[in-house]
């Protein structure tokens, strides 16, 4: 090994030491992969494995004779996906649609729909333990579909419950 190689090694090692951090107990704590988004000035999250896709809201077709929480339908890869406005379902303040609106497509077995979000979304993972499951300050429908509150005060929604909720399913006859 030549002298220059050794000095390169030394520099690399020095950098490695500088960047190194103590590994957190990844094995022990179960992590929760979340996709988070903004809705009526609050941040919500759902478990990532229910999320199929996140897309900008485009070419929405509203449908008559559907409940208020059904914003309309969009075409995604040849499939028709209905877009649900949780603000309406949870009785939250509503504002107009903008270019920033994105939809988060959820899927579970047979059920599939998209949630309207106000603003861009991201994903991260949090330790499962950190979720606070008692929510005394929340009320109404929202509470029924909550998995817990994260340390960053995000409302983590129970996607499985949303997807299987008969209240969110529409089957109407004249």
């Amino acid at each position: 090994m030549s002298g220059t190689d050794r000095s390169v090694q030394a520099v690399l090692q020095a950098r490695a030491r500088k960047l190194a951090v103590v590994e957190t107990q990844l094995q022990d704590e179960p992590e929760l992969q979340l996709v988070y988004f903004e809705l009526a000035q609050e941040t919500y999250a759902v478990e990532a494995h229910y999320v199929v896709e996140v897309l900008p809201l485009q070419h929405l077709t509203p449908l008559p004779y559907t409940p208020d929480f059904v914003l309309g339908i969009v075409g995604v890869h040849g499939h028709i996906v209905s877009v649900i406005d949780l603000r309406s379902f949870f009785d939250l303040p509503r504002q107009g649609l903008s270019d920033l609106n994105r939809i988060v497509i959820l899927r579970d077995g047979q059920m599939k729909f998209a949630l309207l979000t106000d603003r861009a979304v991201g994903s991260c993972s949090v330790p499962k333990q950190s979720l606070q499951t008692s929510q005394p300050h929340l009320n109404g429908v929202r509470r029924d579909y909550l998995l817990g509150i994260s340390t960053a005060s995000w409302a983590v929604l129970d996607a499985a419950k949303l997807l299987s909720s008969p209240q969110l399913r529409v089957e109407s006859y004249v």
């Binding site: 449908l63 969009v74 028709i80 649900i84 399913r169 109407s172 004249v174």
Partner: peptide, 27 residues
């Protein structure tokens, strides 16, 4: 004719959706 997706099992007055040549969805 396409169905309205699993969440909208049956909607009053709407049979399904048509997708036009320009990609637009029409009830």
């Amino acid at each position: 004719l396409k169905s309205l997706g699993p969440q909208l099992k049956r909607v009053t007055c709407i049979t399904g959706v048509a997708r036009l040549g320009n990609g637009q969805l029409v009830p």
